[in-house]
Design a binder for these strands. Structure first.
Length: 203
DNA sequence: TAGGTGATCTTG
DNA sequence: AAGATCACCTAT
């Protein structure tokens, strides 16, 4: 049994600019305790989405729908939605209530529970690519749309802790799969740990 | 490189 | 009420 680590709190999620937060989340550890299975995975790749000015964001320019309403919530909540009919994408809402910012978690590196994550991915061979990509990490960790609106600060099933892992070099580059965002597609708002193999589209 | 997949949003 | 769109993945 591991020593209890510090869980990230509302201050961390609320009082940080979403682009800064996307960088600060690298090296933090997502924990899921779902259906009696406990897993931990270190975040290796993220993307920032800013409601106010970012055409790539589902909630850009105040766009408010049933789906996007979660992005306006208080920082620290989970925003999970179904993409392309198949993939559950896991985002962490940031900023104060009313500000629609979120960080998409794109890739992780298993810390504990590797066996269960591989089972959920339905693979037998270990490889970084098994955990690189936003659809894959949700499947591996057991995160589904059911966890949309989950409060990561108090939840016992889905939360984020700080293992005080030092991240030295961060690569920043353009985001994936947002060609529709015109000039905002050029923003360097995708971040990953330099040299880490658990990254979906290394430069 | 193409096609599957279905919730969500927009248009008429 | 129907059609387009989509923060992706897998297998050819």
């Amino acid at each position: 049994m591991k020593v209890a680590k510090k869980r990230l709190d509302y201050t961390f999620f609320e009082n940080t600019d979403v682009v800064e937060l996307a960088k600060m989340l690298l090296g933090k550890v997502i924990c899921t305790n779902i259906n009696g299975i406990y897993c931990e995975a270190m975040i290796t790749e993220t993307e920032a989405y800013a409601g106010r000015n970012d055409k790539a964001c589902h909630a850009h320019m105040g766009r408010f729908t049933n789906r996007t309403s979660m992005m306006y919530e208080q920082g620290g909540k989970a925003y999970v939605y179904l993409c392309y009919g198949i993939h559950h994408l896991f985002n962490i809402v940031s900023n104060k209530k009313g500000q629609a910012d979120a960080v998409l978690i794109r890739s992780v590196e298993p810390v504990s529970g590797l066996k269960y994550m591989m089972e959920r991915r339905n693979v037998t061979k270990v490889s970084p690519q098994v955990f690189a990509g936003p659809g894959k990490i949700s499947q591996a960790l057991g995160i589904s749309k059911k966890y949309n609106s989950e409060d990561l600060v108090v939840s016992e099933e889905l939360f984020v802790v700080d293992h005080e892992i030092q991240i030295n070099d961060i690569v920043s580059t353009t985001r994936i799969g947002i060609d529709y965002a015109e000039e905002d597609a050029l923003l360097p708002w995708r971040f990953y740990i330099s040299g880490n193999k658990y990254v979906s589209h290394p430069i």
